[in-house]
């Protein structure tokens, strides 16, 4: 059976005015279903670029990327968007909640681009997810009225709405204190135990140590960890 993700010799070069920037250099990596892994490295090491590449938000300059055996290279914008919408959930360091709309509406936003779900089911599921992250009493609040920890939990609920099999988290605890960080970790861990693949990008060594597998990037190259 194909692994969930297989990347082979991937490079990513950003053409900048001051010259090319090599964000990733010939990275190869295989990720199996239901893995709980982290990618660590200093800022500028290319770890976020790798995460967004895995999430089909950007394309490699060279190399091969397969998701569930399918070549990502040949996918159209529509197909890539569909894969993102159905199979991938994103969690960001700065949460990216829409400040003007309420908690529940923020969670529901991820169903906006997955048209086949019925709206009553989606709403029911959104309420369950908000309950799961412990924010049932906050559904009518706006993000600006929440603490950072609460905002990140809303973002996790949003990522889970379409029941994706792959969760990509970019510094999910970066803006949180230890207690809230722990809570987010526990949520991600429990999701992994339910069979979801979790990939966390972090520079928090403690968090990385608590994942099952850790890859370190330096200057766009994998320097240790099993690939």
């Amino acid at each position: 059976m194909d692994p969930l993700i297989a990347i082979d010799n991937i490079s990513k070069v950003y053409a900048m005015r001051g010259g090319d920037v090599h964000a990733l250099r010939q990275v190869s990596l295989t990720i199996e279903e239901a893995e709980f892994m982290s990618i660590v490295g200093k800022s500028g090491s290319g770890k976020s670029t790798l995460l967004y590449l895995l999430g089909l938000l950007t394309s490699p300059t060279s190399g091969e990327y397969r998701i569930r055996g399918r070549q990502a290279h040949g996918l159209s914008d529509f197909e890539r968007s569909q894969v993102r919408g159905k199979e991938i959930g994103f969690i960001f360091q700065s949460f990216h909640l829409v400040p003007q709309i309420k908690v529940l509406e923020n969670v529901l936003l991820s169903a906006r681009y997955a048209p086949e779900t019925s709206s009553t089911d989606t709403r029911k599921r959104a309420l369950e997810l908000v309950d799961r992250v412990g924010l049932s009493h906050r559904i009518d609040h706006r993000p600006t009225e929440l603490s950072n920890g609460e905002m990140q939990r809303v973002a996790i609920a949003r990522a889970l709405l379409t029941d994706p099999s792959l969760i990509l988290a970019d510094e999910p605890t970066g803006n949180l204190d230890e207690e809230n960080g722990d809570e987010v970790y526990n949520l991600l861990k429990s999701l992994n135990e339910e069979g979801k693949t979790i990939i966390i990008v972090t520079h928090d060594a403690q968090l990385a140590a608590r994942t099952d597998r850790c890859i370190r990037l330096k200057d766009g190259e994998v320097v240790n960890g099993s690939t």
Partner: peptide, 16 residues
């Protein structure tokens, strides 16, 4: 811009 990025991450196509 951030919202546009977010919508793209949530599965919005360019056409969306």
């Amino acid at each position: 811009r951030q919202e546009i990025g977010l919508r793209r991450a949530l599965g919005a196509t360019r056409r969306d």
